[in-house]
Computed example of a mutant assay.
Amino acid sequence: MTPTEHAAVTVHDPTLRDGQHAVRHQLDRGQIQAYAAAADAAGVPVVEIGHGNGLGASSHQVGHGRLSDAEMLATARQVLTSSRMAVMMLPGWGTSADLRQAVHHGVDVVRVGAHATEATVTERHLGVIRELGAEAQGVLLMSHMASPAQLAEQCALMADYGAQAVCLFDSAGHYLPEDVTNRITAITAAVDIPVGFHGHNNLGMAVANSVAAVAAGARIIDACARGFGAGAGNTQLEVLVAVLERYGHSTGIDLRLLADAADLAEQTLMPAPPTIDSTSLASGLAGVFSGFKKPVLNAAAQEGVHPWDVFVELGRRRVTAGQEDMILDAVRSLAAQGERR
């Protein structure tokens, strides 16, 4: 999986969006502004801001954010003088009105996400983003649930809809490097736009998977400071950049200043850096969205069932991100089976 071409790689930093999952979307203005300023000073090309589930997602179902979308974007925009500002949007939570508000607040890049086999839901929103003058990117979530050929087909659809880049999310941290290689290779053969990869670390493979993605032709890689993110966390930003530099890939990032930004993130954003505990491991093996960790732990404790069994059951049901309501149903089903036994 060693990269053979020393191509430039654009690093996309969703610390202030994906990291929100780990703190129940409660980052405040001071935290957002300080880290955004540190990332900007380090030369991080793209910094993503927002609720963990993206524009318009603050809700009882997935958690109310401390700040509104507008407050978060305005706060970050003040200090992002060099880095481009990005947001995530999932149709069903975010709307065209949210997109217009985001671009009004200075967003440069908008990612529209869909389940791995449902790219058609991105068509209208990708068109709106292009009309607004921002860069439109298409994202496939839970991508391990589709074959390389299916993912290539879905990415080609998003390119036809106007996506200027496409990105695979390993939302459950389920991939091994060869899984990434096969999928990125298929996608780069199917589209003429940049391809990206977003890893989670449930099996401890996030950096290795990201390097495999670059070797297969990906030119956009996501990573978070100290891996700050849901469950076992994301690809660790400062480690990724160091590894890419060792392989000879240019990122344009000052690694010394990036290390300082990572130290700041650990000190001010998170109770502790993410770790691969037994629950995160079960999530990765079962192929279940990493953001389900805390809801699963809570529901399992209430009903007296083992969280490992809950993740196995959710994986069997092929539950996807956004189906949090299925957690309690799975827990109750397991509890009932236990009573019958």
Results as ranks from 00 to 15, higher is better:
residue 155 C to G: 10
residue 219 R to D: 00
residue 204 G to A: 00
residue 167 C to S: 13
residue 228 F to G: 15
residue 161 Y to P: 09
residue 142 M to P: 01
residue 219 R to T: 14
residue 121 V to R: 14
residue 176 L to I: 03
residue 214 V to C: 06
residue 227 G to T: 08
residue 177 P to M: 01
residue 221 I to A: 08
residue 149 A to I: 06
residue 263 D to T: 11
residue 196 G to I: 00
residue 216 A to G: 07
residue 126 L to Y: 03
residue 251 T to G: 05
residue 223 A to H: 09
residue 142 M to W: 02
residue 207 V to D: 00
residue 156 A to N: 07
residue 172 A to L: 06
residue 207 V to H: 09
residue 194 P to W: 04
residue 199 G to Y: 09
residue 121 V to G: 12
residue 187 I to A: 03
residue 211 V to T: 02
residue 226 R to M: 14
residue 163 A to K: 10
residue 242 A to T: 14
residue 140 L to A: 08
residue 164 Q to R: 12
residue 177 P to C: 03
residue 206 A to V: 04
residue 161 Y to I: 05
residue 181 T to E: 04
residue 175 Y to H: 11
residue 129 I to N: 05
residue 188 T to Q: 00
residue 152 A to Y: 11
residue 213 A to M: 13
residue 132 L to Y: 01
residue 183 R to S: 13
residue 158 M to R: 13
residue 263 D to R: 10
residue 184 I to W: 01
residue 209 N to W: 04
residue 151 L to T: 14
residue 153 E to M: 05
residue 196 G to T: 00
residue 189 A to K: 13
residue 155 C to R: 13
residue 202 N to D: 13
residue 139 V to A: 03
residue 167 C to A: 11
residue 189 A to H: 12
residue 259 A to T: 15
residue 122 T to C: 14
residue 262 A to N: 00
residue 150 Q to D: 15
residue 206 A to K: 10
residue 188 T to R: 09
residue 217 G to W: 05
residue 131 E to S: 15
residue 213 A to G: 15
residue 148 P to Y: 14
residue 179 D to F: 05
residue 208 A to S: 09
residue 135 E to I: 13
residue 221 I to R: 06
residue 175 Y to D: 10
residue 260 D to Q: 13
residue 187 I to N: 04
residue 132 L to G: 02
residue 240 L to T: 07
residue 251 T to I: 04
residue 130 R to E: 03
residue 200 H to Q: 08
residue 233 G to F: 11
residue 198 H to Y: 02
residue 128 V to F: 01
residue 249 H to E: 08
residue 181 T to M: 01
residue 197 F to H: 04
residue 262 A to V: 01
residue 198 H to D: 06
residue 128 V to E: 08
residue 186 A to M: 00
residue 201 N to T: 01
residue 165 A to Q: 10
residue 263 D to Q: 06
residue 211 V to D: 00
residue 255 L to K: 05
residue 121 V to A: 12
residue 224 C to E: 10
residue 178 E to D: 15
residue 233 G to L: 09
residue 189 A to E: 15
residue 246 R to W: 13
residue 170 D to N: 02
residue 235 T to C: 11
residue 244 L to T: 03
residue 255 L to D: 02
residue 184 I to E: 03
residue 148 P to L: 13
residue 223 A to N: 05
residue 180 V to L: 09
residue 202 N to K: 08
residue 172 A to F: 05
residue 231 G to E: 08
residue 162 G to W: 04
residue 215 A to S: 03
residue 265 A to W: 01
residue 135 E to F: 09
residue 248 G to K: 04
residue 146 A to K: 06
residue 224 C to Y: 06
residue 204 G to V: 01
residue 230 A to L: 09
residue 168 L to I: 12
residue 145 M to H: 10
residue 228 F to W: 02
residue 216 A to I: 04
residue 219 R to F: 00
residue 205 M to I: 00
residue 180 V to Y: 08
residue 242 A to C: 08
residue 153 E to D: 12
residue 191 V to D: 00
residue 162 G to M: 06
residue 176 L to E: 07
residue 249 H to V: 06
residue 210 S to T: 11
residue 231 G to M: 07
residue 177 P to E: 00
residue 259 A to L: 12
residue 219 R to M: 00
